[in-house]
């Protein structure tokens, strides 16, 4: 018996996400799905295959590679692309590399701006995508809670949060002028719990970093940083210690905090999340530069 008979709430969320993706594919000539390798992207990709079954995905995946992702993430990405036979486009901001931008040398703010936001805009321009799916959810962060499902971007990819189109019922105004684009969020109404519930219900594969394992950790500013390679210089007196940790959210490894955990199964992860008194993005350094920092980044084109 399918879980869909018991869990009406999740069944509705699944139907809604499929509806949103089909609407965008019907309305845009060159859509793309942002694939960040995390759990939300995994769920979104799974939903997309259902939406267009028995056909193939009618759009490519785009991964904006900052070159600082965990190696396990990149390996997982390439396995998924090969297994599903999808058109995966990877973009790296070569100009940023040439300028020596990195989270270590330049700090979280500059690194994110150049290697994520600017890189994303380069990729959207290079392939002339007119719509981009993102896995962002409204429960993640306060400014995201305000965003539309079909979120309009100007010709220079800017978001104008004070002047969003009203979005009534399921009647999405998808119209754009030449050069403008739309960000589309199929998981808008999902919560972190819903994503995990769905991953469990549908047996969706996720990056092993979400599960607890012994990993080399250095402790900095109260954050547990997993030293994924030797590009992360050790400060005097610092030595990586093996600890049993996992990640609740994934990003560039020097900017993402791990948590001490023994949860090595989906059930254990979900149990642990329900007991947590911290929000999901608490482990993300880049959100905390200043109040409203997520909104500021989004105005500039960040997802």
């Amino acid at each position: 018996m399918s879980w869909r008979y018991d869990n009406i709430r999740l069944r509705r969320l699944e139907a809604e996400a499929i509806y949103i993706m089909r609407e965008a594919v019907a309305e845009y000539s060159n859509p793309v799905m942002l694939y960040s390798i995390g759990k939300d992207s995994s769920a979104m990709l799974h939903l997309a295959q259902k939406a267009f079954h028995p056909g193939k995905l009618p759009f490519p995946l785009l991964h904006v590679d900052t070159t600082w992702k965990f190696r396990e993430m990149i390996a997982f990405r390439d396995q998924v692309a090969a297994r599903l036979g999808v058109d995966l486009r990877v973009h790296i901001n070569d100009d940023g590399i040439a300028r020596g931008i990195s989270p270590i040398a330049s700090g979280a703010g500059i690194h994110t701006q150049v290697m994520k936001t600017e890189a994303l805009l380069q990729a959207l321009g290079k392939w002339k995508f007119d719509a981009a799916f993102g896995g962002a959810r409204r429960d993640e962060e306060k400014s995201r809670a305000k965003e539309r499902v079909f979120s309009h971007r100007s010709t220079n990819h800017a978001w104008d949060p004070r002047n969003q189109r009203p979005e009534l019922w399921k009647l999405f105004n998808t119209r754009i002028k030449p050069g403008e684009s739309m960000r589309v969020f199929p998981l808008s109404n999902w919560t972190e719990y819903d994503v995990w519930d769905y991953i469990r219900a549908e047996n969706i594969l996720v990056v092993p970093l979400y599960f607890a394992a012994q990993r080399p950790v250095v402790e900095r500013d109260g954050m547990l940083i997993v030293r994924d390679d030797d590009r992360l210089p050790l400060l005097p007196g610092e030595a990586p210690k093996m600890m049993r940790v996992r990640f609740r959210t994934l990003g560039c490894y020097p900017l993402t905090g791990a948590m001490l955990s023994g949860a090595d199964t989906l059930d254990a992860i979900i149990e642990e999340m329900r007991g947590s008194s911290m929000s999901e993005r608490q482990g993300r350094l880049i959100d905390h530069d200043s109040p409203g920092s997520m909104e500021a980044k989004k105005r500039e084109g960040y997802f």
Binding site: E141, K142, S143, K146, P161, R162, P291, E295
Partner: peptide
């Protein structure tokens, strides 16, 4: 302030756009 997530909202102490909470 838990709901008014836009900078303009926080500065002016008003709600401009709809916020969804789950």
């Amino acid at each position: 302030l838990l709901l008014d997530g836009l900078e303009a909202e926080r500065e002016q102490g008003i709600t401009i756009d709809v916020a969804y909470r789950y």
